[in-house]
């Protein structure tokens, strides 16, 4: 597993990193508008010589839920994982174009990946808790940020577990191994863990694909509660899910962004033929 060195002290030049500043402060130097938090301009991601996604241009609104749908291998996950540079783990990749979060070019050399990933959290397809206690899973991120106070950590664990609708089920077993939880509980724990770093954006890569319908419903309720406070981008294979949870939907196909718009419009009145084919189940 390869990774470029990620803690670059040089990246901490004042004024360069705007991850903590309001998006408006960076508005004039980037394509983002006031309400945009993630902006892509002709963004292309290459695996070796093959493009994973090509010429993506889209803006994602602050505090909204945005769904990305499309057939397998269309680049949904590639795009999602570019936003917090999770794709750095894959050797021999490169990018073109611009992808910005809060006004900062994500692929700029000066980007501090540690800050980026604390601000742009991620929930993965399969629940991936650490082989640690529930408590330690949640405090992992905050501790990396230097929070040591027991009282603060305790409060944070309680708040995050409540936000992730898991508190009532685990409040008596906080020091039990997280691996002993059920799949759905593990996934909610992973969401709680992500919330604990106080991100502004939460990326969800098919968070419900390994879960049963009940657990899926709980996660969807959770997304409903989290929106507004967090900007959520969710990749999903489940079109009903996209329709239920998201305000806007992007349809990807063969590495290209085919259509992007209000979810209800995209599902009821798609502008492109391939979108219509996909959402009506004619392919994919």
């Amino acid at each position: 597993m390869e990774l470029t060195p990620i803690r670059k002290r040089a990246a901490l030049q004042p004024g360069k990193i705007r991850l903590n500043s309001p998006p408006s402060a960076a508005a004039e130097e980037t394509p983002c508008t006031q309400k945009t938090i993630i902006g892509a301009r002709d963004f292309t991601f290459y695996y070796g010589s093959k493009a994973g996604v090509e010429n993506i241009t889209m803006d994602i609104e602050v505090g909204s839920v945005t769904a990305i749908i499309g057939p397998s291998g269309c680049g949904k996950s590639t795009f999602l994982r570019s936003i917090n540079r999770m794709n750095d783990l894959i050797p021999q990749t490169r990018t073109e174009g611009l992808l910005s979060v809060g006004g900062q070019d994500v692929y700029d050399k000066s980007t501090n990946l540690v800050n980026l990933r604390q601000q742009v959290g991620m929930v993965f397809q399969r629940p991936n808790p650490f082989a640690k206690s529930i408590y330690d899973n949640i405090t992992y991120g905050p501790k990396l940020q230097g929070i040591r106070s027991k009282a603060k950590l305790n409060a944070l664990v309680e708040k995050c577990l409540k936000d992730a609708a898991l508190w009532d089920e685990v409040k008596d077993d906080l020091h039990k191994s997280a691996l002993a939880l059920s799949g759905g509980q593990q996934q909610r724990l992973c969401i709680a863990r992500t919330l604990a770093t106080k991100p502004r954006v939460v990326l969800m890569d098919e968070p419900c694909s390994a879960l049963d319908p009940l657990a899926t419903a709980r996660i969807e309720d959770l997304i409903e509660e989290l929106k507004g406070t967090y900007t959520i981008v969710i990749v999903t294979h489940n079109m009903q899910q996209a329709a239920r949870v998201s305000k806007r939907t992007a349809f990807f196909c063969l590495g290209k962004l085919i259509e992007y718009g209000q979810t209800d419009k995209l599902f009821t009145n798609p502008q492109e033929k391939s979108t219509e084919d996909y959402i009506t189940g004619r392919f994919g």
């Binding site: 990946l113 650490f130 770093t197």
Partner: peptide, 25 residues
């Protein structure tokens, strides 16, 4: 890889990921 990704995704460096997650596990 999932566990490593989880750690990187929470803003850990490679050294932190190795020392706090991978080696303990």
């Amino acid at each position: 890889r999932e566990v490593r990704e989880a750690s990187y995704g929470l803003g850990a460096t490679r050294a932190e990921t190795m020392l706090k997650v991978v080696i303990p596990a």
